[in-house]
Amino acid sequence: MKRESPFLCVITDTTIQTRFSHLDLAKFAIRGGADMIQLREKKMKSGELLETASAIQKLCKEARVTFIVNDRVDIALLSGADGVHLGQEDLPIEYARKILGKGKTIGETAGSLEQAIQLEKEGADYIGFGHVFPTRSKDKPSPAKGVAELERISRSISIPVIAIGGISHANLPSLLVARPAGIAVIQAVCGKDNPEEATRELKSLLMGDTSNLSIAQREVSP
Protein backbone atom coordinates (compact mmCIF):
# COMPACT_ATOMS: atom_id res chain seq x y z
CA MET A 1 0.00 0.00 0.00
CA LYS A 2 1.36 3.39 -0.95
CA ARG A 3 1.34 5.83 1.88
CA GLU A 4 1.62 9.56 1.55
CA SER A 5 4.73 11.00 3.10
CA PRO A 6 4.26 13.27 6.12
CA PHE A 7 3.75 16.93 5.34
CA LEU A 8 6.09 19.70 6.39
CA CYS A 9 5.04 22.68 8.48
CA VAL A 10 7.51 25.52 8.89
CA ILE A 11 6.93 27.83 11.85
CA THR A 12 8.35 31.29 11.26
CA ASP A 13 10.35 32.67 14.16
CA THR A 14 12.16 35.96 14.58
CA THR A 15 13.35 35.40 18.13
CA ILE A 16 15.92 32.66 17.47
CA GLN A 17 17.27 34.72 14.57
CA THR A 18 16.86 38.28 13.34
CA ARG A 19 18.28 38.22 9.80
CA PHE A 20 15.02 37.13 8.22
CA SER A 21 11.54 38.55 8.69
CA HIS A 22 8.47 36.34 8.96
CA LEU A 23 7.67 37.11 5.35
CA ASP A 24 11.23 36.22 4.23
CA LEU A 25 11.05 32.92 6.05
CA ALA A 26 7.64 32.13 4.58
CA LYS A 27 8.98 32.83 1.08
CA PHE A 28 11.99 30.58 1.59
CA ALA A 29 9.91 27.80 3.09
CA ILE A 30 7.38 27.92 0.28
CA ARG A 31 10.12 27.81 -2.37
CA GLY A 32 11.74 24.92 -0.52
CA GLY A 33 8.50 22.96 -0.69
CA ALA A 34 6.82 23.42 2.71
CA ASP A 35 3.19 22.30 2.84
CA MET A 36 2.17 24.54 5.71
CA ILE A 37 3.37 27.83 7.16
CA GLN A 38 2.62 28.86 10.70
CA LEU A 39 3.15 32.49 11.69
CA ARG A 40 4.22 32.65 15.30
CA GLU A 41 4.78 36.14 16.64
CA LYS A 42 4.10 37.23 20.20
CA LYS A 43 5.30 40.81 20.39
CA MET A 44 4.26 42.67 17.27
CA LYS A 45 1.48 45.27 17.42
CA SER A 46 -1.82 43.99 16.03
CA GLY A 47 -1.79 46.30 13.01
CA GLU A 48 1.65 45.22 11.85
CA LEU A 49 0.88 41.59 12.68
CA LEU A 50 -2.19 41.66 10.47
CA GLU A 51 -0.17 43.21 7.63
CA THR A 52 2.43 40.47 7.97
CA ALA A 53 -0.21 37.75 8.12
CA SER A 54 -2.04 39.15 5.10
CA ALA A 55 1.18 39.22 3.06
CA ILE A 56 2.03 35.63 3.97
CA GLN A 57 -1.53 34.53 3.27
CA LYS A 58 -1.26 35.96 -0.25
CA LEU A 59 1.96 34.03 -0.91
CA CYS A 60 0.53 30.83 0.51
CA LYS A 61 -2.63 31.11 -1.51
CA GLU A 62 -0.68 31.54 -4.74
CA ALA A 63 1.48 28.55 -3.90
CA ARG A 64 -1.44 26.51 -2.53
CA VAL A 65 0.28 26.18 0.80
CA THR A 66 -1.77 26.04 4.00
CA PHE A 67 -1.38 29.10 6.21
CA ILE A 68 -1.95 28.96 9.95
CA VAL A 69 -1.69 31.79 12.47
CA ASN A 70 -0.48 30.99 15.96
CA ASP A 71 -2.69 32.06 18.90
CA ARG A 72 -4.47 35.09 17.37
CA VAL A 73 -7.87 33.99 16.09
CA ASP A 74 -8.72 37.55 15.04
CA ILE A 75 -5.56 37.82 12.92
CA ALA A 76 -6.39 34.45 11.32
CA LEU A 77 -9.90 35.68 10.55
CA LEU A 78 -9.00 39.08 9.12
CA SER A 79 -6.00 37.85 7.12
CA GLY A 80 -8.04 35.08 5.53
CA ALA A 81 -5.68 32.40 6.85
CA ASP A 82 -6.64 28.74 6.59
CA GLY A 83 -6.71 28.39 10.32
CA VAL A 84 -5.22 28.94 13.74
CA HIS A 85 -2.92 27.01 16.01
CA LEU A 86 -3.78 27.30 19.68
CA GLY A 87 -1.76 26.62 22.80
CA GLN A 88 -3.13 25.64 26.18
CA GLU A 89 -3.02 29.30 27.28
CA ASP A 90 -4.88 30.62 24.24
CA LEU A 91 -8.59 30.81 23.49
CA PRO A 92 -10.29 27.41 23.84
CA ILE A 93 -11.21 25.62 20.60
CA GLU A 94 -14.97 26.17 20.90
CA TYR A 95 -14.47 29.95 20.90
CA ALA A 96 -12.08 29.86 17.97
CA ARG A 97 -14.53 27.64 16.08
CA LYS A 98 -17.38 30.08 16.63
CA ILE A 99 -15.31 32.89 15.16
CA LEU A 100 -13.69 31.01 12.27
CA GLY A 101 -16.48 28.62 11.35
CA LYS A 102 -16.38 24.99 10.28
CA GLY A 103 -14.42 25.52 7.09
CA LYS A 104 -11.24 26.58 8.87
CA THR A 105 -8.52 24.46 10.42
CA ILE A 106 -7.98 24.60 14.17
CA GLY A 107 -5.02 22.84 15.71
CA GLU A 108 -3.83 22.68 19.26
CA THR A 109 -0.74 21.48 21.02
CA ALA A 110 -1.02 18.42 23.25
CA GLY A 111 1.63 17.16 25.61
CA SER A 112 0.03 13.81 26.42
CA LEU A 113 -2.34 11.20 25.04
CA GLU A 114 -5.06 12.31 27.47
CA GLN A 115 -4.82 15.87 26.21
CA ALA A 116 -4.82 14.71 22.60
CA ILE A 117 -8.01 12.70 23.14
CA GLN A 118 -9.61 15.64 24.93
CA LEU A 119 -8.71 18.05 22.12
CA GLU A 120 -10.09 15.70 19.50
CA LYS A 121 -13.36 15.71 21.46
CA GLU A 122 -13.33 19.50 21.58
CA GLY A 123 -13.20 19.59 17.82
CA ALA A 124 -9.55 20.09 16.95
CA ASP A 125 -8.71 19.37 13.31
CA TYR A 126 -5.19 18.30 14.17
CA ILE A 127 -2.91 17.91 17.16
CA GLY A 128 0.60 19.20 17.52
CA PHE A 129 2.40 16.73 19.74
CA GLY A 130 5.71 17.35 21.36
CA HIS A 131 8.23 18.10 22.07
CA VAL A 132 9.36 14.87 20.50
CA PHE A 133 13.07 15.57 20.86
CA PRO A 134 14.93 17.88 23.24
CA THR A 135 14.45 21.45 22.02
CA ARG A 136 15.92 24.88 22.61
CA SER A 137 13.22 26.85 20.81
CA LYS A 138 11.24 27.32 23.97
CA ASP A 139 11.91 27.15 27.62
CA LYS A 140 10.74 23.60 28.11
CA PRO A 141 12.07 21.96 31.19
CA SER A 142 9.97 18.83 30.71
CA PRO A 143 11.75 15.82 29.19
CA ALA A 144 11.30 15.04 25.49
CA LYS A 145 8.28 12.81 24.83
CA GLY A 146 10.03 10.53 22.38
CA VAL A 147 9.16 8.73 19.17
CA ALA A 148 7.36 5.80 20.82
CA GLU A 149 4.85 8.11 22.48
CA LEU A 150 4.33 9.92 19.19
CA GLU A 151 3.50 6.62 17.55
CA ARG A 152 1.09 5.65 20.32
CA ILE A 153 -0.78 8.95 20.00
CA SER A 154 -0.86 8.81 16.20
CA ARG A 155 -2.50 5.39 16.48
CA SER A 156 -4.91 6.37 19.25
CA ILE A 157 -6.68 9.34 17.72
CA SER A 158 -8.28 9.76 14.34
CA ILE A 159 -7.25 13.34 13.58
CA PRO A 160 -3.80 14.11 12.14
CA VAL A 161 -0.90 14.34 14.56
CA ILE A 162 1.94 16.72 13.77
CA ALA A 163 5.23 15.99 15.49
CA ILE A 164 7.01 19.05 16.86
CA GLY A 165 9.96 19.90 19.02
CA GLY A 166 13.66 19.53 18.35
CA ILE A 167 13.25 17.91 14.94
CA SER A 168 16.43 18.23 12.87
CA HIS A 169 17.75 16.89 9.59
CA ALA A 170 19.75 14.38 11.61
CA ASN A 171 16.98 12.94 13.75
CA LEU A 172 14.09 13.22 11.30
CA PRO A 173 14.63 9.79 9.71
CA SER A 174 14.34 8.14 13.15
CA LEU A 175 10.96 9.78 13.60
CA LEU A 176 9.32 8.44 10.50
CA VAL A 177 8.61 4.99 11.98
CA ALA A 178 5.98 6.71 14.14
CA ARG A 179 4.14 7.75 10.98
CA PRO A 180 3.03 11.23 12.00
CA ALA A 181 0.71 13.03 9.59
CA GLY A 182 3.23 15.83 9.51
CA ILE A 183 6.17 17.44 11.20
CA ALA A 184 6.66 21.03 12.31
CA VAL A 185 10.04 22.71 12.60
CA ILE A 186 11.43 26.05 13.69
CA GLN A 187 15.17 25.78 14.28
CA ALA A 188 15.75 23.32 11.43
CA VAL A 189 14.68 25.99 8.94
CA CYS A 190 14.71 29.43 10.58
CA GLY A 191 18.02 28.75 12.31
CA LYS A 192 19.86 27.81 9.10
CA ASP A 193 22.03 29.91 6.81
CA ASN A 194 19.89 28.89 3.89
CA PRO A 195 16.31 28.33 5.03
CA GLU A 196 15.10 27.47 1.54
CA GLU A 197 17.65 24.70 1.06
CA ALA A 198 17.05 23.48 4.60
CA THR A 199 13.34 23.20 3.82
CA ARG A 200 14.05 21.35 0.58
CA GLU A 201 16.25 18.83 2.37
CA LEU A 202 13.66 18.22 5.09
CA LYS A 203 11.10 17.65 2.38
CA SER A 204 13.37 15.10 0.68
CA LEU A 205 13.88 13.32 3.97
CA LEU A 206 10.14 13.16 4.50
CA MET A 207 9.81 11.53 1.12
CA GLY A 208 12.34 8.95 2.18
CA ASP A 209 15.20 10.28 0.09
CA THR A 210 18.48 10.70 1.90
CA SER A 211 20.72 10.87 -1.17
CA ASN A 212 21.10 14.63 -1.54
CA LEU A 213 21.32 15.48 2.11
CA SER A 214 24.00 17.89 3.16
CA ILE A 215 23.80 17.99 6.90
CA ALA A 216 26.86 20.18 6.58
CA GLN A 217 24.45 23.12 6.59
CA ARG A 218 25.78 25.52 9.10
CA GLU A 219 23.54 26.52 11.93
CA VAL A 220 23.18 30.18 12.65
CA SER A 221 24.21 31.16 16.11
CA PRO A 222 21.19 32.56 17.99
Binding site: V73, D74, L91, Y95, K98
Partner: peptide, 9 residues
Protein backbone atom coordinates in the same frame (compact mmCIF):
# COMPACT_ATOMS: atom_id res chain seq x y z
CA UNK B 1 -9.05 46.62 23.94
CA UNK B 2 -7.11 45.41 20.90
CA UNK B 3 -8.34 41.80 20.66
CA UNK B 4 -11.25 41.36 18.28
CA UNK B 5 -11.36 37.61 18.93
CA UNK B 6 -11.84 38.23 22.64
CA UNK B 7 -14.39 40.98 22.02
CA UNK B 8 -16.41 38.43 20.02
CA UNK B 9 -15.84 35.59 22.49
Amino acid sequence: NERLDLALS
